[in-house]
Write a protein that binds this DNA or RNA. Structure first.
Length: 140
DNA sequence: CCATTCATAGCCT
DNA sequence: AGGCTATGAATGG
């Protein structure tokens, strides 16, 4: 089922099947508010706490699993470049972009903490969110 | 220093 | 299998 969460930064919709979070959209969908581990985590997140993640959808590929681990390893408020992660995961920067873009769980998986070497990089749900999230995490 | 081009690896159709 | 990147490094002007 898809539920809505109204965050300080904007509307978030997510799919919760009762067991795990399957998908996250950074937009307002036709959904209702709901209390579950995802909303609880979001509550914590937007209060500046990094709580334990709810159960997430199984990574589609093994690589996405590794990538997820790599991303969760980024300290809160810090950012890394695609190349940096790529080096850690022994892969290529482009593959990072692909995998991140295919990530169905933005925010939960902190893919917004990954930026390009010289710029912001991209974001599947709109760069505005990425900017807002980074600004938020940096304490602005 | 700015503009192009290429290498690279994983994802999508 | 082929094309497409949310890149980065190396050239060329």
């Amino acid at each position: 089922m898809v539920y809505l969460y109204d965050s300080p930064l904007g509307p978030i919709s997510y799919e919760w099947d009762g067991e795990a979070c399957q998908h996250v959209w950074l937009e307002r969908l036709d959904a209702v508010n709901h209390h579950d581990p995802v909303s609880a985590w979001l509550d914590g997140y937007f209060q500046g706490e990094s709580a334990a993640l709810p159960l997430l959808a199984k990574p589609a590929t093994d690589f996405q699993g590794k990538m997820r681990a790599g991303l969760l390893d980024i300290p809160p408020g810090e950012v890394r470049t695609y190349g940096d992660i790529a080096k850690v995961l022994s892969t290529s920067p482009r593959a990072m972009g692909q995998a991140l873009g295919a990530n169905p769980l933005p925010i939960l998986i902190p893919c917004h903490r990954v930026i390009a070497a010289d710029g912001l990089g991209g974001f599947s749900c709109g760069l505005a969110w990425k900017k807002k999230l980074l600004k938020f995490e940096r304490g602005f």
